[in-house]
């Protein structure tokens, strides 16, 4: 019994210790960001590996999610004779919710886990220590550019995801199910508010990009420097990111759309 309480206490302490380390890590990372604008090529390289390499996955997934929305939405709306509103339904679901959330989950699985594995391996093969001894601060040289790249990529990927998704919804709605294309687009344009819907969705994706990249980089940097430790850190990145995304999504949604 005492043992159980004791291990609970130890677990609690270690959780808070990690949280503290995570925030210090974030602080150090952010300190390195301003000077990146003097050496933007470092970020460009990372934009490629974090962002561009995720584009294919995002496009395909976005297309399918949009097509499924088109199908499901049509089946529901047609009962009320409201299938003309399919465009609104698809675009609102994507722009407000599914775009940022699903894209962030995919981003965590694709780019986040890769970042964790890369940083963890650099740590376990002493590359980070080696840089430190060459008087190159890995926080500035390695971590900060990846952070900025993740932060920039995620909203863009989410926007792509939503755009392709809407197109997928249109393909199914108009091409397969025969919804009038004029109604599809015009209702969508009227009912999707630039400020309330699009901008709020963009804010969500920015927050998710920030958090996922932070988690991924911290897990890699904090990983036990063995192959097993890096493996576990990669898993943790995906799991913690998923929790963070879904939890934050609820909070943000409550804040943004709560009082309507």
């Amino acid at each position: 019994m005492i043992d159980a309480i004791r291990s609970l206490g130890r677990w609690g302490l270690s959780v808070f210790e990690r949280l503290g380390r995570g925030h210090l890590f974030l602080f150090d990372t952010l300190k390195g960001v301003p000077e990146l604008f003097l050496r933007f090529s470092l970020v460009t390289q990372q934009l490629f590996s974090v962002g561009v390499l995720s584009v294919f996955l995002i496009l395909i997934s976005g297309l399918f999610v949009g097509m499924v929305l088109g199908l499901q939405g049509y089946n529901t709306l047609v009962d009320f004779g409201a299938e003309e509103s399919l465009g609104v339904m698809v675009s609102l679901s994507l722009v407000r919710e599914l775009g940022p959330v699903v894209c962030a989950l995919l981003f965590a699985g694709r780019a986040g886990s890769a970042l964790t594995a890369e940083i963890g391996l650099m740590k376990s093969t002493e590359q980070l220590s080696g840089m430190e001894m060459m008087a190159v601060d890995p926080m500035r040289r390695v971590i900060a550019p990846r952070f900025l790249a993740g932060f920039i990529s995620m909203p863009l990927l989410a926007a792509l995801f939503s755009a392709v998704g809407i197109f997928g919804g249109f393909l199914v709605g108009h091409g397969l199910l025969g919804v009038d294309d004029g109604a599809f687009w015009s209702q969508m344009q009227v009912k999707t508010d630039w400020y309330d819907d699009v901008l709020n969705g963009v804010i969500k994706s920015i927050v998710f990009g920030f958090v996922v990249t932070w988690i991924a980089l911290f897990e890699g940097y904090d990983a036990t420097p063995t192959s097993e430790g890096v493996g576990r850190a990669t898993t943790r990145t995906v799991v913690h990111s998923a929790f963070a995304i879904l939890g934050l999504d609820f909070m943000l949604t409550a804040l943004m759309f709560g009082e309507e």
Binding site: Q127, S129, G130, M133, A135, V136, R141
Partner: peptide
Amino acid sequence: RKRMGMLFQSGALLTDLTVFDNVAFPLRE
């Protein structure tokens, strides 16, 4: 540290750079 060189037991080369770029790394930085 700029005035201290250190040779790590494992070498600690940067795995995403060629031999040339590894040696050039401190100069470029």
